[in-house]
Write a protein that binds this DNA or RNA. Sequence first.
DNA 1: CTGAAAGCGCTTACAG
DNA 2: CTGAAAGCGCTTACAG
Lengths: 341, 341
Amino acid sequence: MKRVTTEDVAKIAGVSQSTVSRVLNDYPYIKKNTRDKVLAVINELGFTRDEIARSLVEKRTKSIGLILGSISNPFFAETAEVIIERAQELKYDVIVYNTGHKDENLEQAINLLIGKRVEGIILTSVSKNYTEKIKKLHDNGFPVLLYNSFLDIKDVNFIVMDNNKGARLAVQHLIKLGHKKIAKISGPSKYLATYERTVGYKEEMMENGYEIDEGLIFNSEFSYDKIYSFTKKLLKKKDRPTAIIAASDQMALAVLDAASSLNLKIPADLSVVGFDNIRLSANEFIGLTTISQQMDQMSLTALEKLIYLIENKETSSSSIQIFLKPELMVRKTTGPAPVQD
Amino acid sequence: MKRVTTEDVAKIAGVSQSTVSRVLNDYPYIKKNTRDKVLAVINELGFTRDEIARSLVEKRTKSIGLILGSISNPFFAETAEVIIERAQELKYDVIVYNTGHKDENLEQAINLLIGKRVEGIILTSVSKNYTEKIKKLHDNGFPVLLYNSFLDIKDVNFIVMDNNKGARLAVQHLIKLGHKKIAKISGPSKYLATYERTVGYKEEMMENGYEIDEGLIFNSEFSYDKIYSFTKKLLKKKDRPTAIIAASDQMALAVLDAASSLNLKIPADLSVVGFDNIRLSANEFIGLTTISQQMDQMSLTALEKLIYLIENKETSSSSIQIFLKPELMVRKTTGPAPVQD
DNA sequence: CTGAAAGCGCTTACAG
DNA sequence: CTGAAAGCGCTTACAG
């Protein structure tokens, strides 16, 4: 399939290549007659402008990068949908990278995206190992924005929930229900958002007079299988916890999976709280109690702030650091602590 | 942030721009000395090759398009993850478009992607209204491949499950459990894959001596809310069905949602079968009986066949049309038909 | 209103 | 081994 160029169109329409380009760009002063002629030829030949060539001269690609941990996790799928759809409306396309939560992949994704000359990047699941890398991009004036992820420096844009507060809400809810042995399942603490949830959990537990049992805390990989087997082992113990707070709804689902495989009844035998408020958690068949991250707002804001940064490079000065308020959504997976026997 | 070019590197390294390009492309015959010098400058300046400019001359973008109905549907999220990850391994990046199951968006997405000079497109959720459009691309030698979607012509590449057979498996399973009133929830029949499921359902019902009750068949939009309210209305009737076959696991989840809101017990009061076998359906807390589409194989094959088409444009002659075998996964949402009262 | 020409940042024959 | 030059397909001052 030989590509049709503006040159080809020009020749057939009997005008210059620049004229073809002008009608493509809706220049004013073009005689209606020649415009019509050119348009006709464009149509006839099935010409499609080469945006690659255009990007080269315009120094704009109208595309952005979206780097996320794992799009099969509904939190990422649902937020990605909001981002992609809104980007489309604004005429940007989005190149998606899936890191599988691997640091090397994150670094590689950023480099490839920069090579492809995306105009900005939205990132999630950024570990603090990448603080320097992100800071450098930011300092160079390259639009980057994290969501559900943050770094402990001034020179970075992010939008996150108040994670500490969110964890406290979960703990308070469970304590009110009479739970004393509450486990916490989190990802690796190099992810600060996850780390904050663990901190909030510990602080709230201690402030309520409970001791921290490190055996009840899982702080390892973002892996369904790992979480599933940790939970199973935990729940097989004689003195098992009566409640578990997971650091995401996806993790909560793994916990429910493990608990159900042990024939534990939810919430009679075990209460479970998630984080995120993915759509599924509101499903009446499931009814997952969770901490809402206001996912739609988070992702929509992420996209719009990034586009703002792209289109106002000069004026933007200070960093964008937004904290969303967490909200406890009580549903069916939490209930009164079982009477100890 | 002024971009660094090969010209800049050349000047500082004291060589010509072509030499810089050569070290970038790992040309053999370059004196180790000059290569090292260039590499040092590249490093020092933080140079990243402009892939846009490169694409223009190479006439290759190393990127593909992925157009899907709705990435928040786990079927698409999980298959997209396989496709994106495998594409990354093969050094292709993927631009994702979300059509929201709107025909206009599909058309627009294809045009934009072609403008961006992607080398091939993977499509899902293609309605038969787009038969001509897809055929034209195919005939022009442009690599396109559909998955979980097909068109009734020779000149199109696709990979789908045997949908008629899949629906029959679901019906057989329910009939064996004693169900007589079985409802079917599908998407619009302009999507042939969905249509085939309805056909298989009808055929199997009739072959088993049951009459088709059109009131038990939903053939409208792919909308969670629509399906939810249709189901709710259906289940409120005195002579409600004892089983429902949904055309996807996502739809089955909507059915379960509606049934639970009516306090129906699953499967005691209602059996539910889905299609897809998303990961969640195997979760013991949910245990959705479903027809497996072999999602991983389907999506991996889709990506690899597309890349094959891209990299062997000349040799490829006949169309790729692959049918995967459906498999019934019996879990917890189906059980014996309740005794009628 | 419209054409000829330069230039975006690369790759790659063509010479030497 | 390496440089000068053409060219990929566009956009846009510069003239007229």
